[in-house]
Amino acid sequence: MTEAHRRQKQPEVVRQQLLSVARLLLVGEGAHAVTLDEVSRRAGVTKGGLQHHFPNKRALLDALSDQLFAEFENRFARLLAAESATPGRNARAYIRTCFDSDGGPDDIEMQLAIGLLALGTPEYRERWNERMKIELATDHLAVKAPDLLLVCRLAADGFWFSQMLGVYDLDAAHKARVLSMLLALCAKAVKR
C-alpha cells in the first residue's frame, strides 16, 4: 500500500506529479507504456487518486498535450514579444523558439514528448497543424517572399527534430551561427 492516504492533500502538486510521470513514461518508453496503473505506481498515488484527476488514459494524455502546448506557446509568446513589429516577425520568433534551449534534458524531453504525441495521435497532430496554419498565414500576409520564410521554418523544424533525436552535436557557437544564418534568410524574404 502507498503512503498516499497519509499525505496532506495537495491536489495541484499531485496532478503535476502525475503529468510528470506520464511525460517521463511517454519519452522513455513510448505511449503504450503510459497506462493508469503504471503512472499511479510510479507516482506513488493510488489508482483512485489518479482517476480523481484523470478518469482515463485519454484525459491524462489530453492534459499532458495541453501542458506541452502551453510550454511551447509560452516560449513563442516571450520571443514574439521581443521581436520588432516588422514583416517576418512570426517566422523569426518561431525559429528562435525552435532554437530556444540549451539542449538540456528538460528541453529535449519537452520536444520529444510533443513529437511523440503529434506523431502517434491524429487529434494532437491536428492541433499542432492548426497552429502552424495560422502562423504561415501571418507570414504570407507580411512578406514579399513567403516561401523563403517557409524554408527557414522547415530548417528550424529540422533543427528541433535533430535536437530531439540527438542527431547533430552542435556546440553553442555552432548553434548560434546556424540561427544567425536562418534569421539572415528571413531578412532576405522581407526585402525581396
Score class of each variant (00 low, 15 high):
3 E>D: 12
5 H>P: 06
5 H>K: 12
5 H>M: 07
7 R>F: 08
9 K>Y: 14
10 Q>I: 08
10 Q>P: 00
10 Q>A: 15
14 V>C: 04
15 R>M: 10
16 Q>S: 12
19 L>I: 09
19 L>H: 11
20 S>A: 15
20 S>V: 00
22 A>H: 07
23 R>L: 13
24 L>V: 02
25 L>R: 05
26 L>R: 03
26 L>I: 03
27 V>Y: 11
28 G>C: 06
31 A>Y: 00
32 H>L: 11
33 A>I: 12
34 V>E: 09
34 V>M: 10
39 V>D: 09
41 R>I: 05
43 A>D: 06
45 V>E: 05
47 K>F: 09
47 K>L: 15
49 G>T: 08
53 H>D: 10
54 F>Q: 08
56 N>D: 15
59 A>E: 14
68 L>I: 04
70 A>S: 01
71 E>N: 11
74 N>K: 07
76 F>Q: 07
79 L>I: 03
80 L>F: 10
80 L>W: 05
82 A>L: 10
83 E>L: 09
84 S>T: 13
85 A>I: 04
85 A>G: 02
86 T>N: 05
89 R>I: 08
96 R>W: 05
97 T>R: 06
97 T>K: 01
100 D>K: 00
104 G>T: 02
104 G>M: 04
105 P>K: 11
106 D>R: 15
106 D>F: 12
107 D>M: 03
109 E>N: 05
109 E>Y: 02
109 E>L: 14
110 M>T: 15
110 M>F: 06
113 A>H: 00
115 G>L: 11
116 L>M: 11
117 L>P: 01
117 L>C: 06
117 L>M: 12
118 A>L: 03
120 G>R: 01
120 G>S: 13
121 T>Q: 12
123 E>T: 15
123 E>P: 05
127 R>Q: 13
127 R>E: 15
129 N>L: 13
131 R>V: 03
131 R>D: 04
132 M>A: 07
134 I>L: 13
134 I>H: 10
135 E>Y: 12
135 E>M: 14
138 T>S: 14
138 T>V: 14
144 K>N: 12
145 A>M: 13
146 P>L: 10
147 D>M: 13
147 D>V: 13
149 L>K: 04
151 V>K: 06
152 C>V: 15
154 L>A: 07
156 A>E: 05
156 A>Y: 05
157 D>G: 01
157 D>Q: 08
158 G>W: 06
159 F>L: 04
159 F>I: 02
159 F>G: 00
159 F>H: 14
159 F>Q: 02
162 S>C: 11
167 V>Y: 11
167 V>E: 08
170 L>T: 04
172 A>D: 14
175 K>V: 04
176 A>Y: 04
177 R>Q: 12
181 M>W: 09
181 M>R: 09
181 M>N: 12
182 L>W: 03
183 L>K: 02
187 A>Y: 00
188 K>M: 11
